[in-house]
Amino acid sequence: MSIRSQLKLRPRADQRPAAPVAAKMVARGVRVSYGAKPALKGIDLDIQENRVLALIGPSGCGKSTFLRCLNRMNDTIEGCRVEGRITLDGEDVYGRTIDPVQLRARVGMVFQKPNPFPKSIYDNVAYGPRIHGLASGRDELDEVVQTSLKRAGLWAEVRERLREPGTSLSGGQQQRLCIARAIAVSPEVILMDEPCSALDPIATAHIEELIDELRANYTIVIVTHNMQQAARVSQRTAFFHLGEMVECDDTEEIFTNPRDERTQGYITGRYG
């Protein structure tokens, strides 16, 4: 099944023509290097509000590196240097006015491998609101946990077993738990780094539906190796290659009418 037929088979909810949407995050001239090795060579990219942006490209092209720049997770990597400017609602993410802790509360992240804390399901979701003081009192916290689990589509499955360890869930449930954990702190942007690569197709379908629903309230950036997935869940797609952003456009444009030969080659499976 080709990508194009995929697109036709699954019409997206949002079929309006791409009206100009406010950019939630803006990256300009972002360069990243690990020690002497350059990883990103000047990326300019707008991340639009309440849209899903998919980052695609072959392994080692810098998609994940770019994603981790957006919430400064690269700070934890020894020898990683970030240049350029990234703004969130016009505020410089690497500037003095934003603390990384505050930034990461506003820009949440879901990782490739589900990584729930080895605590109960409840505590996994409640941890973020607790440390940020988002809920005062037991009842409010219960409310936040329930809402987050409902939004992550996990409530029905775990409502009877909130005290069981999060690690006892299946892989797909764990990943939805991680999403619930991320949305429990009410972020504005959610970054997802290949969230389905460790999951089976049914769990993947679950997560994809979830991403589509979450779009109403959050801005989402998703890194994926799976081009069908990019086509299914995203409104905009950016193609990365060897540390450069080759092309960024509406997803339909990218998959049906790519401007760059490299994009064309990648999405038709000629390399990558």
């Binding site: 934890t76 802790v101 930034l103 990461r104 992240m109 990584n115 991680c178 991320a182």
Partner: peptide
């Protein structure tokens, strides 16, 4: 596992937390 540190940092826990 480093994934635990990532998980905590990514929801805005300070390094000490």
């Amino acid at each position: 596992p480093p994934s635990i540190r990532d998980a905590a940092l990514a929801i805005g826990a300070s390094p000490l937390q």
